[in-house]
Computed example of a mutant assay.
Amino acid sequence: MLDKTVLIIRFHSLGGEDISMISGDFDGEQGALEVIARALDERRSLVLTRARYDRETEMNGVVINLANVVLVRVSKTDSAEAGQYL
């Protein structure tokens, strides 16, 4: 089995703070964008099985309610200038 790419996924919500997750659930940026876009289109939550929140040390399962998310950025690096937007 191939190792998954570690990505930083930043969720910008309609109100409240942005949430940044580190995820090993996807093969790359494009694959992550496609899965997230599909979840948004289908109005369902995004399930990550290998994610870390706010630099936690252990990978955990996370369910993200996308109902109030207005922007998602996916990047291989944690930089304000890098990444692909959805």
Rank of each mutant, 00 (worst) to 15 (best):
M1H: 11
L2W: 03
D3K: 15
D3C: 10
L7T: 01
L7G: 00
L7F: 00
R10A: 11
F11H: 08
H12V: 13
H12Y: 12
S13E: 08
E17W: 02
D18V: 07
D18S: 14
I19G: 04
M21W: 06
M21K: 13
G24I: 01
F26D: 01
G28W: 02
G31H: 10
A32T: 00
V35H: 02
I36K: 04
A37S: 14
A39K: 08
A39T: 03
L40M: 15
D41E: 07
R43G: 01
R43E: 15
R43T: 10
R44M: 10
S45L: 05
L46A: 06
L46E: 12
L48D: 04
L48I: 06
T49K: 15
R50G: 00
R52A: 13
R52P: 06
Y53M: 13
D54F: 01
R55Y: 10
R55Q: 12
E56Y: 09
E56L: 07
T57M: 08
M59C: 00
N60C: 10
N60F: 07
G61H: 07
L66W: 10
V69E: 06
V70N: 05
L71V: 10
V74Q: 01
S75E: 06
S75T: 06
K76S: 13
T77V: 10
D78N: 12
A80L: 09
E81Y: 09
E81Q: 13
A82S: 13
Q84I: 01
L86Q: 03
